[in-house]
Write a protein that binds this DNA or RNA. Structure first.
Lengths: 199, 199
DNA sequence: ACCTGAACACCGTTCAAGT
DNA sequence: ACCTGAACACCGTTCAAGT
């Protein structure tokens, strides 16, 4: 419909905010700074995002939407346990990346913990959680099908593995992460072994 | 020396800040609010705590110092696994208490993740981490000594269990915690079983 | 050394006013 | 409906001035 028009004001604001976060994940994204970067007035920003939380929620949703790469579950010529380990490391890399996941947790914390999250904001998190559990269950199913094995509770195992990954991820954001890093693999191996007791 | 004097200005400020946090863990502890509550000027507050982070660090250190209750590792007539489980739940209750640990993580996040922590602030965290690992190792040693058992790597097991507890704790602070709560015990049992494979 | 309070440059939100 | 910019009540920090 409105095809030859440039980006809408709403889009300009979101692009500006995301760009600023990309340039410096430490920025506080103030109304005036974002509005100036987007080339709109503060009032206009407030028209589309009535509160600062609404703006951050929208930015968060955009960030989470990208970057779910494909699984290393099938294409590896590794023993089953090693493949699950690789997948978990892959998952961990997304949530606790280069800067030790500090930028990830900064965003997540602001959106969900600092103040009571809005209903839709909570919905975003829960959707992401379901998606993550579904992926882990998928890995467990693949491995269970390869060996026609005794049926384990894949949902429970997925919750367990997710808790371990979350634990390592939040520890990465805390002081002394570098010193803990060498021990991470051992933790993941223990978790994998707990879920795959045989071979 | 200064025995009959009332609390020092520094102490008045810390008491005021802690009290305010106790009354409402959601408060932002602004300079003016704390200073007014303590009955001192903002300038005076700044004299003892040159930056807001310095104030929060001092308050945090005070909060963490309290409330490490005694272990349920010995006094229970329960099987070993159940006792370790009880201890982990005990640990979890400290870090993810009534409000799902939101107030705990709020404080921890502000102190360690939101901005680069100061050297002494990081030291506080690392000391607390060592203390926690030492406790978990202590539990494992107690249980290992009861049965004269094959020597496991207690340090590695403690790191593993701590990661699981941290994972559950941070998930408690996220949306949908109530729905996840019934599954927590299963996760802890899986972790306990991984560390105590026999009986 | 300890303490005061004004001043500065910010912040999020509200709102009358324009188109 | 969309947009503006001033105004309000905050915020953390700085600093000349007092004792």
């Amino acid at each position: 419909m409105t095809d030859e028009n440039g980006p809408s004001t709403r889009e300009k604001i979101l692009v500006a905010a995301s760009t600023m976060l990309g340039e410096d994940s430490t920025t506080r994204l103030s109304v005036r700074a974002v509005a100036a970067r987007a080339g709109v007035s503060t009032g206009s920003l407030r028209h589309f995002f009535p509160t600062q939380r609404d703006l951050l929620d929208a930015v968060m949703a955009g960030i989470y939407a990208v970057g779910v790469a494909d699984d290393p579950i099938r294409d590896l010529a590794l023993p089953p346990r090693e493949r699950l380990l690789a997948c978990l490391q892959h998952l961990l890399a997304q949530v606790g990346g280069e800067d030790g996941g500090r930028s990830y947790w900064r965003s997540a914390f602001r959106a969900y913990v600092e103040t009571e999250p809005s209903a839709e904001s909570a919905e975003v998190y829960l959707a992401l959680e379901r998606e993550g559990l579904r992926r882990v269950e998928g890995w467990l199913d693949v491995l269970a099908n390869e060996r026609g094995d005794t049926r384990r509770d894949a949902a429970a195992d997925a919750r367990f593995l997710t808790a371990v990954v979350d634990g390592i991820a939040i520890e990465r954001a805390m002081p002394g992460a570098a010193a803990r890093q060498p021990g991470e693999v051992a933790i993941l191996r223990a978790a994998v072994a707990a879920v795959m007791p045989d071979a």
